[in-house]
Structures are given as structure tokens and as C-alpha cells.
Amino acid sequence: METIRLPASVVTELRKRVEKEGITLEDYVLERLLADVDPPSRAEAYAEAALDLLRAAEEELRAGDLRQASEKIWGAAALAVKAYAYWRDGVRLASHGELWRYKDKIAAELGDWVHDAWAQANAMHINFYEGWATEISVELALHRVRQLVFEIVQKIGVAPADK
């Protein structure tokens, strides 16, 4: 994962746009950078970004920042679902509702456990804002979402650097 430094005014504007669209910063940047890229390549980029967010979530959890770990867990799940949609159907999922509906398609193909992983990811999205989850809850969510991301990454054909 690469770190980029931006002026505070640019970061403020990015945060406003991301909040308004209800997506992660990673998703926002990927959509703009990959606007002219074919769906299979987008799928790979989203899958790789999901893996990066999982690694970042693990680091945040080790550092004790449960809110940041939670948001990265959510982001990893959302990007993995988007990756699957690009890979399987060549479609862009642009809202939380579309993510929820598409998750059902993934569950029909990969198994009902996907519903649990998705529920855990959404609990982490809530925890980012509310801060109620315990460390054990965040660890459990990370475990479930890791399975979702790795299954999707394997299906798409992107090799994770490490498990």
C-alpha cells in the first residue's frame, strides 16, 4: 500500500464527496481512475484494493484503533462485492442498496455464509460511526470478511500476497 500526501483543503473536499456518496475513499479514487478500464481489469483492481484494506484493518486492530479497523473491514467487503460484480457481470454497483442486492447473488453462488460475512461487515460500518464494538467483535468480523474477500479474490483469479 502506498501513502500519498495531499493538502488539507484537498483532503477536506475528498471527505465531503466520499461522505455525500456514502462510499470509501478507496472506492471513490478507484472509480475515477478506472473510468476507462474494462470490467475484468476493474475487478482485479478492486480485488487488490480489498486485500490492501484487509491488511490495513489488521494493522489498525493491532494498534488498537477499532473504529479505523472497522471501516477498513467494511471497505474490504464492499470492494470485494464490487470486484465480483465487475468480474461476473461487468456491472458497476453504485449504492449500498445495490451492494446488498448483489451480495445475494454471491451467496447463491458461494454459499449462505456470505450473508453472515456481509452482516459482520455492515456492523463494522456502523461501528466506525458509533464506536460500540468490542475488540472481539472486530476480530470476528475481520475473520468473516477475510473469508469473503479471499473467496472472491480466488474466484476472480487474483493471487493474494499472503493469507
Score class of each variant (00 low, 15 high):
residue 108 A to P: 03
residue 82 K to R: 15
residue 118 W to Q: 06
residue 73 I to R: 01
residue 99 L to Y: 15
residue 90 G to C: 01
residue 48 E to S: 09
residue 84 Y to H: 11
residue 98 E to Y: 02
residue 138 V to D: 04
residue 135 E to P: 09
residue 78 A to D: 15
residue 55 R to N: 07
residue 53 L to Y: 00
residue 113 W to I: 04
residue 97 G to R: 10
residue 85 A to V: 12
residue 135 E to Q: 14
residue 142 L to M: 02
residue 110 L to K: 10
residue 62 R to S: 07
residue 118 W to F: 07
residue 92 R to K: 13
residue 55 R to C: 09
residue 71 E to I: 00
residue 54 L to M: 14
residue 47 A to M: 04
residue 142 L to T: 06
residue 85 A to M: 06
residue 95 S to T: 13
residue 122 N to K: 11
residue 112 D to N: 08
residue 54 L to Y: 08
residue 129 Y to Q: 06
residue 116 D to F: 13
residue 124 M to N: 14
residue 130 E to Y: 06
residue 139 E to Q: 13
residue 74 W to K: 00
residue 69 A to Y: 08
residue 51 L to W: 03
residue 60 E to M: 04
residue 130 E to F: 08
residue 77 A to W: 02
residue 130 E to D: 09
residue 101 R to H: 12
residue 92 R to E: 11
residue 90 G to N: 05
residue 73 I to N: 00
residue 121 A to D: 06
residue 74 W to H: 01
residue 65 D to I: 06
residue 50 A to P: 07
residue 80 A to C: 04
residue 99 L to T: 13
residue 108 A to S: 11
residue 115 H to P: 07
residue 127 N to F: 03
residue 74 W to Y: 08
residue 67 R to E: 05
residue 62 R to Q: 15
residue 129 Y to C: 02
residue 126 I to D: 14
residue 71 E to P: 00
residue 59 E to H: 02
residue 119 A to R: 12
residue 58 E to M: 01
residue 68 Q to F: 05
residue 49 A to S: 12
residue 69 A to P: 05
residue 64 G to A: 08
residue 62 R to L: 09
residue 50 A to H: 01
residue 67 R to G: 06
residue 57 A to L: 10
residue 95 S to L: 10
